[in-house]
Design a protein around this nucleic acid. Structure first.
Length: 272
DNA sequence: CGGCCTGTTCCGAT
DNA sequence: GATCGGAACAGGCC
């Protein structure tokens, strides 16, 4: 599930827990904690409060602090990554029992924040201070929702790389996943295997503009919409049709990932 | 049982 | 060096 827009939705969920003192950290499955121990995470968060979380690509970073005091650079942060199946929920009072795949619950007086993840491909990390946060995220490119056109073009490069692989690479720009990349490339009429060196100035301009427009809509929904006017709304149908021209969508493998595209709107070139 | 999956990392082959 | 494909991680579904 989680790509940039989903994580943006989780950021809004986390905001509901903000400011409340965490009375208890229930580690239901320590396998969801990465790079530190359950005890260390508990000790760092217990008695503290979540501050204002920020998102970078698919990562969610939440500074914690002593209630009533601002976060300081030497304070730790809790860092969430949701892999393919993770999510964050906020439950107040008794509404909603815990789910089988809830791995960690942060319990406050007014509700509890639950990290749920079926597959546990990633998990929750703890950075002991702001510098450690920077080190952890150092390999990521600029957030896709903020990246300028020049950043996009320069970081994606102009070599023999396929545009889908470049956009999926979190070191190029951070936040796009398999569904979003297919959606964006479909909107700009580019075949996913197009080599970056074959993109024109105009291609880069429309790619950048469309990336932002697509992200903006998806972020407000807190997910990649499966609306019928989106490619994403048809990619899982058998014989799914292109919402623009009606041709039957094709599914191939690009960059090791299932890739949906329209043979009429996105004709393959002499690549692949 | 085999294969597939909205993510990332690592390793080896070109 | 650049780029790619496959495997691994883990668990549920078809």
């Amino acid at each position: 599930m989680p790509e940039l827009p989903d994580v943006e939705g989780f950021r809004r969920v986390l905001a509901k827990a903000g400011g409340h003192r965490v009375d208890r950290v229930d580690v239901l499955d320590a396998g969801a904690i990465r790079g530190t121990s359950a005890d260390t995470l508990r000790d760092a968060v217990h008695g503290h409060a979540f501050g204002t979380a920020r998102r970078h690509g698919k990562w969610l970073i939440c500074p914690i602090h002593v209630p009533g005091r601002k976060h300081r650079k030497a304070d730790p942060s809790v860092i969430f990554h949701f892999g393919m199946t993770g999510e964050l929920t906020w439950s107040q009072h008794d509404d909603g029992e815990r789910h089988q795949h809830d791995r960690v619950a942060f319990v406050t007086g007014s509700g509890e924040l639950r990290y749920r993840d079926m597959r546990k491909l990633h998990g929750i990390r703890l950075a002991s201070d702001d510098h450690e946060v920077e080190v952890l995220l150092a390999g990521l490119g600029p957030d896709a929702a903020d990246a300028s056109r020049d950043q996009l073009r320069e970081r994606a490069g102009s070599g023999q790389r396929r545009i889908k692989s470049a956009l999926m690479d979190q070191a190029t720009i951070a936040g796009l996943g398999n569904l979003l990349v297919d959606e964006i490339l479909w909107r700009v009429h580019l075949h996913p295997s197009t080599l970056t060196r074959d993109l024109s100035d105009r291609d880069w301009r429309t790619l950048h503009r469309t990336m932002h427009a697509t992200l903006r809509k998806a972020m407000s929904a807190g997910r990649v919409p499966d609306h019928s006017s989106w490619l994403t709304g048809h990619r899982d149908d058998r014989d799914g049709a292109c919402p623009r021209c009606g041709n039957v969508l094709r599914h191939t493998r690009v960059g090791g990932r299932n890739t949906a595209w329209c043979p009429s709107c996105q004709p393959p070139g002499d690549h692949d």
